[in-house]
Amino acid sequence: MTDLDVDEVEATTGTDAARGTFVETVAIEDDDEVLFAGDTGVLPFEARRVLALLLQRRYLSAADHPAEWKHLLTHQQVLSSRLHDLFVELVVDRDYEIAYKRQVRSEGLAIPVLLRDEPYKRIETLLMLFVRNRFRQEQGSGTAAAFVDAEELTDYTLGFLAHDETNLAARRREIDNAVATLVREQVLAEVAAGRYRILPVVEILLPVDRLAELTAWLRADTPEVSA
């Protein structure tokens, strides 16, 4: 073998070794998981599912969605960024293991409002106060979960009606509708006919300062207040 041949072999071997050592990188776009025809999303399936649930639901809890909660914590930064693109803030309460979204509001910015704060009606607010206090009492006694019966909710609310109220059937229907609203808002979860579990989100919806404010409102008998 001539010196030239040796040089050529060494050069070729060196090049092959380099190719074996330095794996050719793949473009980031090639790593994206295509989930459906025409998919241009960049998040993995687990993160997309969590994002969709956050947009769909009032809140996401570890108790109801343990797997999704873990994925939320894993992808929290990018999920927060995606929501910020919509002027929505991701709030993660690790103590109660609940995550929810909140509308961003900033003075001087013309921000389209996606999340509107609908005021609770008077009866709904009365029920919120009642279940919030019940939840605090049960938590203070060390009870793992707090429950309330439909009849308790009805009796409590009827106690705030005018003494000359005659149409009790209509008032009871209003109370039933208010309870249904709290179930839909995921404040209450029906575990049996007429029996509800009070969900921890009530602590977030009615923090101590808000509880005091609503109690003052209740004493003043204001017809409606935003909660």
Score class of each variant (00 low, 15 high):
residue 181 T to P: 00
residue 181 T to G: 00
residue 181 T to A: 08
residue 182 L to M: 06
residue 182 L to Y: 02
residue 183 V to G: 03
residue 183 V to Y: 00
residue 184 R to E: 05
residue 184 R to I: 00
residue 184 R to G: 07
residue 185 E to K: 03
residue 185 E to Q: 06
residue 185 E to G: 06
residue 186 Q to N: 05
residue 187 V to Y: 11
residue 187 V to L: 10
residue 187 V to I: 15
residue 188 L to F: 13
residue 188 L to H: 11
residue 188 L to D: 05
residue 189 A to F: 10
residue 189 A to S: 15
residue 190 E to C: 15
residue 191 V to L: 12
residue 192 A to R: 10
residue 192 A to W: 05
residue 192 A to G: 12
residue 193 A to L: 12
residue 193 A to D: 15
residue 194 G to D: 12
residue 194 G to A: 15
residue 196 Y to T: 01
residue 196 Y to V: 01
residue 196 Y to F: 12
residue 196 Y to M: 01
residue 197 R to G: 09
residue 197 R to F: 12
residue 197 R to M: 07
residue 197 R to S: 09
residue 199 L to S: 03
residue 200 P to C: 05
residue 200 P to L: 07
residue 200 P to W: 11
residue 200 P to Q: 03
residue 201 V to Y: 15
residue 201 V to D: 09
residue 201 V to Q: 06
residue 202 V to R: 01
residue 203 E to C: 01
residue 204 I to M: 08
residue 205 L to E: 03
residue 205 L to S: 05
residue 205 L to F: 03
residue 206 L to E: 00
residue 208 V to T: 14
residue 208 V to A: 11
residue 208 V to P: 09
residue 208 V to W: 13
residue 209 D to E: 12
residue 209 D to N: 13
residue 209 D to Y: 08
residue 210 R to W: 04
residue 211 L to V: 03
residue 212 A to Y: 09
residue 213 E to L: 10
residue 213 E to N: 01
residue 213 E to M: 07
